[in-house]
């Protein structure tokens, strides 16, 4: 068995652990009571929910993101890079068969993500406010994901990086449910509740 194949298996095991861990987190959330609002709504819940996931996420939609436009856009690009790196992992076994356009897109988006992550690390270290809010877990999470994205970029540049990319992918997948990165699943619930609340009350949407 080649080193790449071995790492491939390790990634699959890590993926299983990640899904199991997130499932456990999800169970922890869904086991808690849900207390729906029974008051007669003033507006449409669904319009609020759609707003929360679409227009409401745009950088111009909120005072805070208008004020912190560049850091917000950095965050968006960083997260785009994460999706690109996950996609990279998904298509990696077929790398040699992929058209050059895909290779280029993978390279660009993982690269953008890695740069976004690097800026994020520097901000967390040098911005006094962020430092005040951060725990070791916050630094570790952003460093891990940034290095993972950089490895994704390296993978697109040269297949000799495959083993390193797989090793970092496995580590990241295992870290997702255990570290701050787990906010990825709570995001959907939080924004859903946000949209539901403000949609029913005819404030947004």
């Amino acid at each position: 068995m080649s080193a790449t194949t071995l790492w491939g298996w390790i990634v699959l095991i890590a993926l299983g652990l990640c899904i199991g861990g997130l499932g456990w987190r999800l169970y922890g959330l869904l086991a808690r009571p849900y207390r729906p609002d029974r008051a007669q709504p003033r507006g449409s819940a669904w319009r609020g929910i759609v707003y929360a996931f679409t227009w409401g996420m745009m950088p111009w939609a909120k005072e805070s993101t208008r004020r912190h436009f560049l850091p917000y856009v950095r965050g968006v690009l960083f997260h785009l890079g994460i999706f690109a790196t996950l996609a990279t992992l998904a298509v990696s076994p077929w790398r040699s068969a992929l058209p050059a356009s895909i290779t280029m897109a993978g390279l660009v988006f993982t690269g953008i993500g890695a740069v976004g992550g690097l800026i994020g690390i520097l901000m967390r270290i040098f911005d006094e406010r962020l430092r005040a809010l951060s725990h070791p877990d916050d630094y570790a999470a952003v460093v891990l994901v940034t290095v993972w994205q950089a490895a994704g970029m390296a993978f697109w540049t040269d297949p000799r990086w495959t083993a390193a990319f797989y090793a970092l992918s496995a580590l990241t997948l295992i870290a997702i449910p255990l570290t701050k990165i787990r906010h990825c699943i709570y995001f959907f619930f939080s924004r859903f509740f946000f949209g539901l609340f403000y949609g029913r009350r005819a404030v947004l949407g």
Binding site: P33, Y34, L133, F189, S190, F193
Partner: peptide, 13 residues
């Protein structure tokens, strides 16, 4: 409840 737990967990600081 679910709303509170999501609010506690989701902050990315």
């Amino acid at each position: 409840d679910r709303r509170l737990l999501a609010a506690l967990e989701v902050c990315a600081r």
